[in-house]
Design a protein around this nucleic acid. Structure first.
Length: 589
RNA sequence: CGGGGAGUGGCGCAGUGGAAGCGCGCCUGCUUUGGGAGCAGGAGGUCGCGGGUUCGACCCCCGCCUCCCCGACCA
């Protein structure tokens, strides 16, 4: 009967222990869940970074947690450098503050709501303008209190009708959201620029080549707005970028402008009505007449508020609903149902603006600047030739409401054309100006003693989406190739056969400690797995530098060092004494 | 919200109106140890939920739930 000795943990100052894979929670799989379609979803799931709980709702597992924590750290550093102050605001909020801002019933997607036990109406916050306005209102009384930038890294919930793409579009997600408070437009511009620069820094440090593109400000409202976009086919954003070398114009589809070409000028011809049985689309109409679709005017019915409008655009362009919304004062347009069209007294089929009161007509300038167009006769089975704006129809609402597509002429330079790309929106910055400060009464006294509205900006980055985007941008057929800055570990030491070989064990453990004490995030893979399994895991997870300690490597003189991006066969052998310097150099490369 | 598809061990899948299976993973032992090892023996499933038909339902019928994909679209 031996005596049980009490184990007293020893605290050793400045001595760090490397993480051992046997003590960690790495559960990779060979096969991705069948519903994982995007690369990032597949690899993040296979490498046990994330676990799906419900549609658009994920848990973050230990490996993913490490990467996200590194992303958060980078964001915090850049936000703090830009003058931001970190705060935390509640996810659960009383619905009343959303009524105060006027968004309780207008936010899209609709707010997720519930009643607490006292039957008080609560919402799950999809964003935090209301609470940050309250925080500003609490203490901002003077122009001397600004500029002020507050930010948080906090969970949001948006009840999207459809989530997709793993972490790319989810319902519950973590976001860094920052809010600026300034006394005037110059101050707001400065805060906006500071955030834009911070965003460039953040994405660059996370291994993303994100482009800043002009954007519509969307349902948040406001004035200037820009998205930061990673160009990737799996993205759901459409981006138009000028292909001219000197021109830097880039905008998303909602915002993009372009130069419209004009048909050759002609004199007005007489309107002719003619039968077009069975012709329902612009394409078949143009084909039947033997003309280009640019010689047609198409008409679409949109319901805005409680009114039905005829929206007219040249046949070769598409209506951009966001532009329509902005032209019509911000109310969201939606395509009218056949019932609504009929109820409004418009004929369904072969529609046009001819004969429609101009107050119910919205026109793209392409439809009024070209002449002798084919249009519907407002009678099923008939169309009209030579329809002209001003003579045959009129519109009270005229402007650019056309969507840009690939090949359109750039509006900012002389020779460029727009190139269309898919992209993942990883950040968005807005100038809100006084929208929320007016609604939520965030005011200050200026130097002259006059009460003024604070000018606000808001700036968001989805952390989980950033991780997924980083994987989309950094992977190969073996797995993720995350940059050192956001990989869960910087170095993995694969100890081959260490449980039967003291030399391997001693060298691997000593090296791991040496690396850890040098400030390098090290994982010692001490699992009793076949070497091939450990190599495959290291590749899948994307360990930036892999070090092999094995009987063979020792026989060859030390340890093997390999960069994740190089071929598995391209490792180099180094003595134990050289190892630290070689690994540090590999991490820097 | 509309259309399509799918729910069977942790993951990927097969399956038949009559005793729930395979691969991977997991556990034990032995043998192995440089690209997801071998042998032997094991553990693990209310077949999404509820109803119905039937002597008998994972299977057929009805309802519901969940998840995925496509569309949110031009008369």
């Amino acid at each position: 009967m031996g005596r049980i000795k009490p184990v007293v943990p020893q605290f050793v100052e400045n001595q760090k222990s490397p993480m051992r894979a046997s003590q960690f929670y790495i559960k990779t799989t060979r096969e991705a869940p069948v519903d994982a379609e995007t690369i990032s979803h597949q690899y993040l799931a296979r490498a046990s970074f994330i676990q799906q709980i419900a549609a658009g709702i994920f848990s973050i597992m230990p490996l993913g947690q490490r990467s996200l924590e590194k992303i958060r750290k980078i964001i915090r550093e850049e936000m703090n450098d830009a003058g931001g102050l970190e705060v935390t605001m509640p996810v659960v909020q009383p619905r009343s503050i959303w009524q105060e801002s006027g968004r309780a019933d207008t936010y899209i997607p609709p707010l997720a709501q519930f009643l607490d036990r006292r039957e008080r109406e609560m919402v799950l916050a999809p964003t935090h303008e209301e609470t940050v306005s309250m925080m500003g209102r609490y203490g901002i009384t003077s122009y001397r209190d600004m500029p002020l930038i507050l930010y948080q890294i906090q969970t949001k919930f948006r009840d999207e009708t459809r989530s997709r793409g793993g972490l790319l579009r989810v319902r519950e997600f973590e976001m860094k959201d920052a809010y600026s408070f300034d006394v005037d437009d110059e101050g707001l511009d400065a805060s906006y620029e500071a955030m834009a620069q911070a965003y460039h820094n953040i994405f660059s440090r996370c291994g993303l080549n994100a482009v800043m593109v002009e954007a519509d400000s969307g349902s948040i409202g406001g004035k200037d707005s820009a998205e930061f976009v990673l160009l990737a086919d799996s993205g759901e954003d459409t981006i138009l970028i000028c292909n001219s070398g000197d021109c830097e114009y880039a905008a998303n589809l909602e915002k993009a402008e372009f130069i419209k070409n004009h048909n050759p000028s002609e004199e007005f011809d007489e309107v002719e009505k003619f039968a077009t049985p069975g012709i329902k689309t612009i394409e078949t109409l143009a084909e039947a007449e033997g003309v280009l679709t640019s010689k047609t005017a198409k008409a679409v019915f949109y319901t805005i508020g409680d009114k039905v409008y005829v929206v007219v655009i040249r046949g070769d362009y598409e209506v951009n609903e966001t532009k329509v919304r902005n032209m019509m004062g911000g109310s969201e347009p939606r395509l009218s149902s056949p019932e609504e069209v009929a109820a409004a007294g418009f004929p369904a089929g072969s529609a046009s603006a001819v004969g429609v009161p101009s107050e119910f007509v919205i026109a793209d300038d392409s439809a009024i600047e070209n002449v002798n167009l084919l249009a519907g006769a407002n009678e099923d089975g008939y169309h009209l030739r030579n329809v002209n704006y001003g003579r045959d129809w009129n519109a009270d609402h005229v402007g650019d409401i056309a969507s840009a597509v690939e090949g359109h002429k750039c509006s900012r330079c002389t020779d460029g054309h727009l190139k269309q790309n898919r992209g993942i929106e990883v950040g968005h910055i807005f100038k809100l100006r006084n929208i929320y400060s007016d609604a939520m009464n965030v005011k200050f006294n200026d130097a002259n003693g006059n009460l003024q509205s604070v000018l606000m900006g808001c700036y968001g980055i989805g952390t989980g989406r950033l991780l997924a985007a980083a994987v989309e941008a950094n992977h190969d057929d073996r797995g993720m190739t995350l940059p050192r800055s956001i990989a869960p570990f910087e170095v993995v030491i694969v100890a081959v056969n260490m449980h039967n070989n003291e030399d391997v064990r001693d060298l691997a453990e000593a090296l791991a400690e040496q690396l850890e004490n040098a400030g390098i995030d090290t994982l010692l893979d001490d699992r009793d797995e076949a070497p091939g399994a450990k190599f495959a895991d290291a590749d899948l997870i994307g360990m930036p530098v892999r070090v092999v300690v094995s009987p063979r490597s020792i026989q060859n003189g030390g340890v093997e060092v390999k960069h994740r991006l190089t071929d598995p066969k391209d490792s180099t052998i180094h003595t134990a004494d050289q190892a630290l310097a070689v690994i540090q150099a590999a991490l820097e490369s």
